[in-house]
């Protein structure tokens, strides 16, 4: 069995990658992907930790939370993509630097 530390490290790396994506990327779609990476880091944590709580047993609570979080993530992304589509209609670009007033 793979030690839990590997999963934790991976999820931390994913979290950092997501934050880096939000800080550096300038494309709206890439920002939305960054949010998704952040959420999946947490989901991975839930799934991994649910298996390591008691030896030989998998806790359903972690899975429940992960599934719910995926569903909510889908809703969030749907809303975000809608906003991105409307932004594209206004500016004909997805580059957030082109948006006039926002200071990113």
């Amino acid at each position: 069995m793979i030690p839990v530390a590997y999963y934790l490290t991976t999820s931390f790396v994913l979290f950092v990658v997501g934050m880096y994506c939000l800080a550096v990327k300038r494309n709206m779609i890439k920002l939305i992907i960054g949010i998704e990476i952040l959420t999946s880091a947490a989901n991975l944590n839930f799934i991994a930790l649910s298996a390591y709580g008691k030896p030989g047993e998998v806790d359903p609570l972690g899975h429940t939370f992960a599934i719910m979080s995926i569903v909510i993530g889908a809703c969030v992304v749907a809303v975000a993509l809608t906003i991105a589509v409307h932004a594209y209609r206004h500016y004909k670009t997805l580059d957030v630097r082109e948006l006039k007033r926002l200071r990113w």
Binding site: F15, G18, I35, T39, A41, A42, N45, G62, F65
Partner: peptide, 17 residues
């Protein structure tokens, strides 16, 4: 705001673990 929510979610996963 959703970056904030994801951070809270991550913290919840740590507390759960």
């Amino acid at each position: 705001s959703s970056a904030g929510s994801a951070t809270v979610l991550f913290a919840m996963s740590i507390l759960y673990g």
